[in-house]
Amino acid sequence: MTATATTTKHDFEPKLVAFVCTWCTYAGADLAGTSRMQYPSNVRVVKFPCTGRIDPVFILRAFQKGADGVLVSGCHPGDCHYMAGNFHARRRFAAFRQLLDFVGVDLKRLQFSWVSAAEGGKWVEVVTELTERVREMGPMREFIDLDASEHWSAELADAELKAAYHSL
């Protein structure tokens, strides 16, 4: 792995949030670091005991708070520290993906992966790939625009509000 990718300047640096389990993927990311492997610094890692603890609402919240992409990663099937947490997570996220797709969220911004404590290289690969893909897609506007829009008399935007709150 060369360091050239990280020195390239880009117009848009996507913000990625990675929800990872502490036993496998966090350790895998740690291994990538201690092995001096380079991966995009766009990713912010949030550690959980298990993918089974990662509530779909966290993903939603991440997008709402300005994430351009989200990664959820944990132990390979069969390797869960708590026996079955990742099996439950697998079903939950399979369902959640379909729901997000149905409300119109582009699933290319959401990646799931199994990364074990020994797979520092895979962590780098997954993060790099998601970063580049999201970079190409540009900023995630949907939820940000939603947060800026007001509801009033069934209209999404209202001139009155815009005028009165111009100073805010």
Partner: peptide, 10 residues
């Protein structure tokens, strides 16, 4: 508001 409403229904 649209933001919270969307999150609620999801």
């Amino acid at each position: 508001r649209p933001a919270g409403n969307t999150a609620w229904h999801i």
